[in-house]
Structures are given as C-alpha cells and as structure tokens.
Write a protein that binds this DNA or RNA. Structure first.
Length: 383
RNA sequence: GGGUCGGUAGCAAAGCGGUCAAAUGCACCUGACUGUAAAUCAGGCGCCUCUCGGCUUCGGGGGUUCGAAUCCCUCCCGGCCCA
C-alpha cells in the first residue's frame, strides 16, 4: 500500500516522501515524460542516473501500442521499459484536449467526442475509433502497472466560458467518482495497491476551482492534481488558481500540478505547496535545440521566484559555431563535462541523433538540480 | 568541324511575352514549444527602407516590343549525337 508523509515545510513549501509498493520518491519532485514508455531519445538507465525516481507514462498511447494486456504480460510498464522506479500514468484526460480542441485549432479537425459514458477518440491519421470510459482508463492503468493512477478527466481548453467550464467540471467529478468506485472494487482486499489521484478542473473561475477541489476532497483521493492549466490561459492566473485551491486540499496528501512547467513556475508553485510536477519542456525543447543554463549564483536567487536564475539559449544559433566553452559552466552533468557548445551545435546542424540525446540529458539534469535545490532549501530552513 | 539541347538566386530545379524579385526542394538565419499527433512547427532568405515603397536581377552584349527570364541576332560556356 502506498503512502505519503510530509517531512517538513517552510512557509508553504513542503518536503515529503512517498512510498508505493516498496518504491520511494522524495517530494517536491519532477517527472520526466515517457509517454510511450520511453523518455524520448534516452535509456531509462540514463534517466535514473540523473537521479529521477518517477516518470510519467500515458494511458492512451500505451493502450493503443503495444496494448495494456501486452504490458501486463511484460510485468508492467516499469519492468517492460527497464525502469526500476515509480511510474505515474496520465489517464487520457489530456488527450481529450490535445486530440480534441487543440487538434481542431491546429489541424482543423477534432478527434474527440465526449459523452456521459466516456470519450470516443479517433486516431489522427488512421481515423480508427476507440472508446474510453473512466472505468476503462483505470483498468488500463492497473494493467500498465502504474504506481500512481490518474482519474479520467475532461481537460477543457482556454478560453472556456463559465457555463462550459461548469459542465466540464461536473462531468469530471462524476467521472472521478466512477474511477474511485471502480478502483476500490478492483483492489478490494488487496494489500498492494497503487495510489489514485483526482484532478481538479474549473478553468480560470474561482468558485469553480474551489468547488471542484471540495468535491474531490469529499470523495477522498490519495492525492490531488490541478489540471487544465497551461492550456493557453494568461500565465499570471496560475498563482491565483493555486491560491484558490491549495488551502482546500488536505495537508497529508500530495498535490500535483499537471503539465508544468517553466523553471520559475515550478519554483513559485513549490512555494505555494505543490509537491509534484511533470512537463515536456526539458525533453521537447531540448530536442528542438533549446538549452537551459544556470545564471551566475542562480541557485541563490531561486527564492525570489523570478525567472532570473537561469536563461535559455538556442544552441543551433550561428553564434555558437566556434564557441568552445562548456555548454553550461555552472553545470557538472556528464554532457557539460564532456562537450562544448560548438560541438552540440554541430550535432544539431548535421541532424545527428546524439544532439537530441545530449540536449535532453542536460535539460533533464538542469530540472533535477532545480528540484534538488528546492528540496535543500526547505531542509535547511528546518535546521 | 556539323547538329542538337541547355545556361534562372548558395545549390538543385520550375517558369517560356505582362499577374515575376521569380514556384518548389535543400542549405542557411531567427523564433515558438507547458498532463508529447512535436528529432516538430512558424517566419525570413537579391539590395535599400521600420512600413508604404524604391532599386538592380534570370551566362555576356546587342535588338524586337508599350512591356522580355520568356522572341530575334551574336559571343562565351556546358551536355549529348554525328564526323
């Protein structure tokens, strides 16, 4: 049986530890994204070597390929992928957004139909249709062997009018109850069980966010996630959304801010009591050539919550052609110890796959150092 | 030597009288990216100008025409065929 215990806090920043089925992770934590059971371009051993204790996999993608039954036979997604630590699986709720409203906006075609029963997805490309209900999502996640299971939710886009946001949140709440009921039924009498997290929605409306949080707390989950954030809303609203919802959540349960974020967003959110994060930024932007660098004395400037403790460069820029300095002189990761900016630029401009690997490794290391530093700050203030 | 096809922006390659500063691809430059349809996408890419716009281009030179990358003459260069 999994558990989470708070080990300290400083103002609102929390330090915690979670243990699920014998696997452990400290919080605050950041989860690299392994949508299809792989952190793009990296081996799980490399992700582990950086220090990560948990990654995020995706229910939707693994359901379709290779199939949850297959993953179950392989011993679960961790075993299958050579990962020795924790896995959280997203429920498919984000695909309601990314294959739905966002696809409509980007490609002019919506691949999602929502009903009370569940979601009908149609595969981009093939058009193949799949139905996922809240129960189905939980079932798949159990088969995948996830340590943390997310409830299926509807992630609405921004902008979203009040009425739509309200209806969406109510659907998400009804689905959350169904997820919980199904989850309980499946684990009745079992000792080893994963954690089940509920997801708070409500777009940018104060009363809806609070309402959503209350509903979920009443149902009772092992952890609470803030969803529907970073879907196009003004960035300043993040602070308020956290201010509205955090006080409603129980102290002794982990809080997970889904899909975020930029380094300064993580810093600010930790100071508002968030314990868990995940984001494609370090890996995706790495693959696209953006590299995160510490600024001088960056660590000591974290506390202000400003974005001035780091900067990013686009390593494929012309100006790095003959820049033979280390990629980040304030970083001691394996990439920075061995390679120059000029070399990394060369790898990008020649399209070598090593470029994506090195950039992902470095950026994930940057994010890990950030999280570790945040933990240390809370620890130090305890003394 | 004769014939023939061709020479277009960094490269490749469309265009064959006006709507052409010239399609497209590559290369190059810049920018986005937040629970991954993303090793992707967007913009720029003759010169000047913030913009409007202006200026010089389609091997060289000379013509025809209101107007030429597009037609004619000539020269230079390349491919192929025949001697």
């Amino acid at each position: 049986m999994g558990n989470f215990c708070l080990e300290g806090n400083k103002n609102n920043s929390r330090l915690g530890r979670m243990e699920i089925n014998g696997k452990k992770a400290e919080t605050p934590l950041f989860m690299p994204i392994a949508t299809r059971g792989a952190v793009k371009s990296l081996a799980m051993s490399e992700v582990e070597q950086i220090g990560y204790e948990i990654v995020l996999g995706n229910t939707y993608h693994l359901w379709l390929k290779p199939g949850d039954k297959t993953v179950k036979k392989a011993g679960g997604i961790a075993e299958f992928s050579g990962w020795n630590n924790l896995v959280l699986t997203d429920s498919g709720g984000f695909q309601v957004f990314s294959l739905g409203e966002r696809a409509k906006q980007r490609f002019g075609k919506k691949g999602v139909r929502l009903t009370e029963k569940g979601v009908y997805f149609s595969e981009p490309g093939s058009g193949e249709r799949h139905f996922m209900s809240p129960e189905k999502s939980v079932d798949i996640q159990i088969n995948l062997g996830a340590d943390i299971i997310m409830c299926l939710d509807e992630c609405p886009p921004y902008p979203c009018d009040y009425q739509k946001a309200k209806e969406s949140l109510e659907l998400t709440a009804r689905w959350a109850k169904r997820c919980k009921d199904y989850f309980e039924r499946k684990h009745k009498g079992k000792k080893d069980r994963p954690l089940l997290f509920g997801i708070i929605q409500g777009s940018v409306f104060e009363d809806l966010r609070k309402e959503s949080a209350k509903q979920l707390v009443e149902l009772g989950f092992d952890g609470y996630a803030i969803g529907g954030v970073a879907v196009g809303e003004p960035r300043e609203l993040l602070k308020e959304i956290l201010d509205w919802t955090m006080p409603i959540l129980p102290e002794n349960k982990p809080r997970y801010l889904m899909g975020l974020g930029k380094p300064e967003e993580i810093v600010r959110s930790v100071s508002k009591g968030v314990d868990m994060f995940d984001c494609v930024i370090p890996t995706r932007e790495g693959r696209h050539g953006r590299i995160f660098l510490w600024r001088k004395n960056g660590f000591s400037r974290l506390e202000k919550g400003e974005a001035d403790f780091y900067k990013t460069i686009n390593i494929s820029n012309e100006k790095f052609r003959e820049d033979f300095r280390p990629i980040d002189k304030h970083c001691d990761c394996s990439v920075c110890r061995s390679y120059t900016r000029a070399y990394l630029r060369h790898l990008f401009s020649t399209g070598e796959t090593l470029a994506a690997r090195l950039a992902s490794l470095h950026n994930l290391n940057f994010y890990y150092q950030l999280i570790k530093r945040l933990r240390n700050e809370i620890k130090e203030s305890e003394k």
